[in-house]
Design a protein around this nucleic acid. Structure first.
Lengths: 144, 144
DNA sequence: AGTAGTCGTAACGTTAGTTGTTACGACTGT
DNA sequence: ACAGTCGTAACAACTAACGTTACGACTACT
């Protein structure tokens, strides 16, 4: 599977903003977050833009601009982040529609859809059990 | 997420072979399976080759050659198929190592690794609950 | 022994998604 | 007015999946 790191980077950004705000700062810049995540500020802005659409963060423009949390870290679950940044389903069905004249070709899509649906529900429940507060706690618990 | 259809096509092929054998045939050809899945025979051979490495199917060469199940459908779970055809992890960590001088950059990878590990375990347990026999039953239960 | 059918696999092009980068307009505190 | 930052478009690089062609390897059958 071509795993992508969108969820990881988005969680990184949220944890960074959350910690920064606890240190008394108002807003964090995409530049600062990009330096921590070792990537490009535009990548951060793109991801945070999707988180903003989902109502997880807010942004200010102009001088002294930057990003801040729209909700407390403990009220943001990984499922919220996942829904905000991951577009497609976990497993894809056939790229071309299978042969409908064949029994298997006809029934396989609904069958797999049912299976995948149940599995994705379980995955979502697992993601919903972890809050960004949990993540930040784990981050800070790592010995250096 | 760039979802791929490898698991879907592999399950399709197994279900097809299983049904074909129940109809009294010895082996199924990649050509037949490809026609049902509406793809290229080489794609099927590649996937079945990985299933063979995992001990799920067998192949014969020469005239009258083809593929047959190495195990009963009810003893093959989707987890077996998943492990055979899906190489990487579900979620990727950072592409470039984050800034180790930053508290978040230093702790984020172990933290996310822990979370992802737990989630993948749950996913695997779900996949292990579904056998190819279940899948074939669902396939045949679809009204036409 | 020859032939035909099928696998096994390499090679290559196409497509699609992610990521990185540059560029520049829009906005706003000073 | 200026400077700093967001917002976003545009494009290149990279990767993986997928489709296709090609051809050697193998074997049941005649």
């Amino acid at each position: 599977m071509s795993a992508n790191s969108r969820l990881t980077i988005a969680a990184h950004a949220l944890a960074w903003i959350g910690l920064y705000q606890r240190e008394g700062h108002e807003v964090a810049t995409s530049e600062q977050i990009a330096t921590s995540a070792n990537t490009n500020p535009v990548v951060i802005r793109r991801l945070l833009g999707e988180l903003r659409k989902a109502g997880l963060v807010e942004s200010r423009r102009g001088v002294g601009a930057g990003w801040s949390l729209a909700r407390e870290l403990e009220s943001i679950t990984l499922l919220d982040v996942y829904d905000a940044v991951e577009p497609g389903p976990l497993f894809a069905l056939h790229r071309a529609t299978p042969n409908q004249g064949c029994v298997v070709g006809h029934g396989i899509r609904p069958a797999m859809q049912g299976v995948y649906g149940g599995i994705e529900e379980t995955l979502r429940a697992e993601l919903a059990r972890v809050t960004m507060e949990d993540v930040l706690r784990d981050v800070l618990a790592v010995p250096r």
